[in-house]
Amino acid sequence: MWKFVVRRILIMIPQLVVLSILVFILAKVMPGDALSGLVETPGVDSSTIEDMRTTLGINDPVHVQYLNWIKGLSQGDLGTSYIHQRPVLELLEARLWNTVYLSAAILFLTYLIAIPLGITAGRFHDSLIDKLIVGYNYITYATPLFIFALLMLFVFGFQLQWFPTGGSADINLEPGTFSYYMDKIYHLLLPALSGALLATVGTIQYLRNEIIDTKMKDFIKTAKSKGVPEAKIYSHHILRNSFLPIAAFLGYEITGLITGSIFLESIFSYPGIGQLFLQSISQRDFSVVTALVMVTGVATLIGTLLSDIILSLVDPRIRVE
C-alpha cells in the first residue's frame, strides 16, 4: 500500500515539471506585459519603461526567467503583482482559503444531492421517479452556470433577500468567533448551492448507470441466491462497487470546481481566487495569472492523487503489485 502511494507521488514530479513549463510558456506568449499599458502615458518615456522592464527581469533570457521563477516557487515566492505591488503569495493567501471553503461546500452539497438521487434513479430505473431525476439532469446539464448563478442571486439575494449578495463575511464581526464562522457559512450558501445544483449532473448520471450495471452482475445473483434481502444487497454489494467511478472522478470534479468558481465568485462578488483571476487577466497582471494557473494545476494533480489513493483504499485489485 505505502509503495503504491509513494510511487503515485513520485509520478507527480514529472507532471509538475511539465505543468510549470507549460504555464511559463503560456505566460510568455501572451501579448504585452504589465508595463505595456504605460506606453501611451504622458510623462513616462520609453527608456523609463525599458529600465523598469530590466529591473523586473522581463528582459532576461527565457530560460533564466524560468529558472528564477522556479527558484522563487520552491521558496514560496510566487512573484510580485505588478498592479497591486504586493507579493502574489500574500494576495493569494486570503482568497485561496475562501475558494477552498467554497469548493468544499460545493463538493459537499453536490454529493449530498447527487448520491441519494443517483441511487434512487439507479435502483428504480425506468420508473417515474427515475425519469424525473433524469429530466432534472438534462435541465441542469443544459443550463449555463453564469446565467443560473445570476438568476439565483437575483431571486434569493435581491428579491427575497434571504442571502447576502456579496463578500465572504461581515467585516464588523471579529474573525475567529463563532458568529464570524456562521456568517462565513451564510455567505457561502447561495454560491455553493448554485454551483452544486449544476455540478450534480456527472455524479448522478455515473452513479445511476453504475448501479444499473452492477445490478446485472453475476455476484449480485450470487448474493440473491444466498437469501440476502434486497436492501442489504444494495448496501453490501451494489453501492460499494458503484462508488468506484465516483471516486475516480474526484480529481476531475475538483478541476471543474475551480473553473466554476471563476464565474461564481465574480457573480457573487465573493473574494476568492476565481474573482482575482478574472481581475488579473483584464489588468494583464501576469505574475498573478501565472501563479493562479499553477495553483489550479497543482490542485488538479492533488485531486487525481486523492482519487487514486481513495480508489486503492476501496478497490483491493488496485493495491496489488
Binding site: F219, K221, T222
Partner: peptide
Amino acid sequence: FQDPLTALNPL
C-alpha cells in the same frame, strides 16, 4: 454459477 470470475464480489 458458471463463471467464478464474475460470481464473486471483487471488493
